[in-house]
Design a binder for these strands. Structure first.
Length: 272
DNA sequence: TACGGTCACCGGA
DNA sequence: ATCCGGTGACCGT
């Protein structure tokens, strides 16, 4: 049974995070990071859920006072912001735990073998949309089954300067053993050049980008990976052409004991 | 100091 | 998008 382990055990989780911070030096960041306020587009209009939500804070103006970071490297274009307060993110985490129905034993076909994915997976979106990768197809459940996801998507769409999203893939990482291997989001179902918006709640986890030309023993070039943490209540926007050149992963972290839920909002091709 | 256990990282399949 | 194995760093004793 899914509980609210992350929220109920906040002190345990927070302490563990502090231990790590004490141990570790500031990581090297070769990519350029720019701090910008209200990065996204010129006008001053507010951003909020477009339809009435029972989570009232989703209807607050989100555009003011956001401290965006722009993370730039060769063909890498990311925008990162702490979108929700800790309290708000707690509410979203618990709503997700209550509402989201995960697919039973999702499997993928990689290098000639079927594997159970090392996390839980679900998808919501417009009627009829599906997402196919590594031999598996995830079918969107209707937004009505999890309205808060639609509301977050609308909010993020506004904040990102008008990217449209009709689909959200939900990944739940129960602890540090749950992970996702290196890959690019380059599936045919995705609208070409569309941005992907990633909202995280629960346990903060490391996230790593590696350039395609800097991988493997015969790597053509030496390009430093880009590593940072996706925090509780954060939003990461991956802009084109990031997904053409950079692989990303959520590595195993043995010391992590708390769950994280990630929502990746996408624009999928509408099939005729 | 030396060693054993753990873990992060990376390449190969 | 998977797991597995080799390497090397790090930590505690």
């Amino acid at each position: 049974m899914i509980d609210s382990y992350f929220v109920n055990n906040r002190s345990k989780c927070a302490k563990r995070k502090m231990d790590q911070e004490e141990r570790e030096e500031e990581p090297e960041m070769k990519a350029k990071v720019f701090n910008t306020e209200n990065l996204n587009k010129s006008n001053n209009s507010s951003c909020q859920a477009t339809s009435s939500s029972k989570l009232s804070f989703l209807e607050m103006d989100r555009k003011v006072n956001l401290q965006w970071k722009q993370i730039i490297s060769e063909n890498l274009n990311l925008e990162y912001v702490q979108l929700f307060s800790e309290t708000e993110a707690d509410v979203l985490f618990q709503e997700a735990e209550k509402v989201i129905k995960y697919n039973a034993d999702s499997k993928v076909f990689v290098y000639g073998k079927w594997h159970k994915v090392p996390r839980k997976q679900a998808a919501y979106g417009d009627m009829g949309l599906t997402y196919t990768f590594s031999g598996t197809t995830v079918v969107a459940q209707p937004w009505n089954n999890a309205p808060f996801l639609k509301h977050i998507g609308d909010l993020v769409s506004c904040l990102s300067g008008g990217h449209k999203f009709n689909f959200v893939l939900v990944n739940r990482y129960n602890d540090g053993n749950d992970h996702m291997g290196e890959h690019r989001d380059d599936e045919a179902d995705l609208v070409p050049k569309s941005a992907i918006a990633s909202v995280s709640v629960g346990q903060a986890r490391d996230f790593i980008f590696r350039h395609r030309d800097a991988r493997g023993s015969g790597a053509k070039r030496k390009i430093d990976p880009v590593k940072f943490e996706l925090s509780h209540g954060s939003l990461l926007i991956m802009n084109h052409p990031t997904n053409v050149y950079w692989f990303h992963s959520l590595p195993v972290r043995k010391k992590v004991i708390c769950p994280r839920i990630n929502l990746t909002f996408r624009q999928m091709v509408v099939k005729k």
